[in-house]
Write a protein that binds this DNA or RNA. Structure first.
Length: 473
RNA sequence: CGCGGGGUAGAGCAGUUGGCAGCUCGCCAGGCCCAUAACCUGGAGGUCGCAGGUUCGAGUCCUGCCCCCGCAACCA
């Protein structure tokens, strides 16, 4: 197995502030990255911001800002998540970065040289909301059914197209050879049937005079790249492609995305990689969406969750725990503040928090000297790995909490506070502490701060009661 | 016949290859008294959406049907 591991999130489009859904995605990616570091691998974990396109340009204009200034501000807001959510990414690429722009142009050139980019004159109705041209069959009453409030724009111009259709067979062959390529399985089925139903070449450029905010098409000053074409390339430009050892060492990698990105990640991008002669991605994980208190998250409903406020209220560890353990990794889930509190009290305060206080207190009174070490061969670790290797994050974290329960059960059963034999008492406490130490290191994959605290508390020569890990709410 | 997800205890959800229906919260009754009013044990509460089929055996596989929700702006 390679000692190098590369993982990347999708790049969020920066026309609004980061929200809970993206937080869920990047936290899951963070857990996977930490897991691979835990396995001793050298990891690159990439995220960043997608900054081109008409919507962003217009948004900046609305605010009376220079587009780059607007992008700088929004991008910073996403960068802030690193501290706020305790993320461990080590790359943050912006699609307006110079090296990305150059890589996108190089990539384009290679696809063009391979005959996969051609110019076509066409007149089409274009929906600004989708950033997509619409065919007649997609329209209802001459309006985009997805954005009925927006007037369609008629685009009559010569644009560049990518020969997606050429890759249909290759994609299908690739899918059938790589049975776990997209996870979960039902998403894989979805994309397979989509590709099977036929691919149509898609437009990958816009006239610069109409849409100035994009990567210039090499050799044609009148056109800029369509936002999706350039954005996908970030997954390799961040590794220094085309000229870098790092790219050779780390590509291909694991990509994670929300379910709205299924086509782009697992079919469009893979075809683009095939065209440029690069290896397809290693794997694509597709996560579900969140609702807020049972309702679809939307600004018009005024129910978008203020992520920063939430974090300052409950702390990143609680948010991480909730998103990872109480919400399905791959299915849609619901975010509810009352549920968050419930889970916090049950699992963090009464569960892990109380247990660590309970055990530390018992040991402190006995003045034991334990000097415990994490044991990577413990059965717990092996069972845990089995789940993590299949990216069953929710099952893995819940498995750890079952182990927390077992320690509580063990203590109640053995009742060391009643034991009069000093040696027996010490053995009971040591047994419990060893289990907790083993779990702590695994917990730090999900809750880095908590893991660190537990580890330093229970690895110390003199275990002492510390400040409450998770005070009850 | 557009694509997809879902309908399992009062609420929220798990159920991998078909093998005695589970978890968390809440509720009831005990226990413990080391710990954060915590922890442990037991209990009540389900015709697993409906109707068929395959099977020794179906929440799980097959067929049909009913209902809910995404695939609309913002957005993963």
């Amino acid at each position: 197995m390679s000692n190098k591991f590369y993982i990347t999130t999708t790049l969020p489009y920066i026309n609004s502030e980061p929200h809970i859904g993206f937080a869920a995605e990047i936290i899951k990616a963070d857990v996977i990255a930490r897991y691979h570091r835990f396995l001793g691998k050298e990891v690159i974990f990439n995220t960043g911001t997608d900054e081109h396109g008409l919507k962003i340009h217009r948004k900046a204009q609305e605010k009376g800002l220079d587009t780059q200034v607007f992008c700088d501000q929004m991008s910073q807001s996403f960068k802030d998540l690193k501290e706020l959510l305790n993320l461990s990414y080590d790359r943050f690429i912006r699609t307006t970065d110079k090296n990305h722009v150059e890589a996108a142009q190089k990539f384009w050139q290679i696809c063009a040289d391979n005959g996969d980019i051609y110019k076509k004159k066409y007149a089409v109705k274009y929906c600004v909301g989708c950033e997509l041209e619409k065919t007649e069959s997609e329209l209802e009453d001459d309006r985009c059914p997805l954005h009925p409030n927006l007037e369609l724009e008629i685009i009559e111009e010569e644009n560049y197209f990518f020969r997606w259709s050429k890759y249909q067979d290759k994609l299908e062959a690739f899918y059938s050879k790589n049975s776990g390529f997209v996870q979960p399985g039902f998403r894989f089925n979805e994309i397979k049937s989509f590709v099977k139903s036929g691919l149509r070449d898609f437009s990958i450029s816009r006239l610069r005079e109409k849409m100035p905010w994009g990567v210039p098409v090499p050799g044609d000053n009148s056109q800029v790249m369509y936002v999706w074409f350039d954005a996908l390339i970030n997954y390799i430009s961040t590794l220094g492609w085309p000229e870098s050892q790092e790219f050779k060492d780390f590509w291909p990698g694991l990509q994670v995305a929300g379910k709205d990105n299924l086509k782009q990640q697992s079919a469009m991008w893979q075809a683009m990689l095939m065209s440029s002669g690069l290896k397809p991605s290693d794997k694509v994980l597709i996560f579900g969406f969140l609702t807020n208190e049972g309702q679809k998250i939307s600004k018009s409903l005024g129910n978008s969750i203020d992520l920063k406020e939430l974090i300052s209220k409950y702390g990143s560890e609680a948010i991480r725990y909730y998103l990872l353990s109480a919400i399905s990794t791959y299915n849609d889930g619901d975010f509810s503040e009352s549920r968050l509190k419930e889970v916090y009290n049950a699992d963090l305060a009464n569960g892990l928090g109380n247990l660590s206080a309970r055990l530390a207190n018992l040991i402190e009174k006995e003045e034991l000297s334990l000097k415990l070490e994490f044991n990577p061969k413990a059965e717990i670790t092996l069972n845990f790995k089995r789940l993590m290797d299949e990216y069953k994050l929710q099952e893995a974290i819940n498995f750890l909490w079952q182990e927390v329960d077992k320690i509580n059960e063990y203590l109640s059963r053995e009742a060391p506070w009643k034991e009069t034999d000093k040696e027996k008492k010490a053995l009971i406490l040591k047994t419990a502490a060893i289990q907790l130490v083993n779990i702590s290191d695994l917990i730090s994959i999900f809750l880095p701060e908590t893991g660190k605290k537990l580890f330093s508390q229970f690895k110390a020569e003199k275990i002492k009661k510390a400040e409450s890990l998770f005070p009850r709410l």
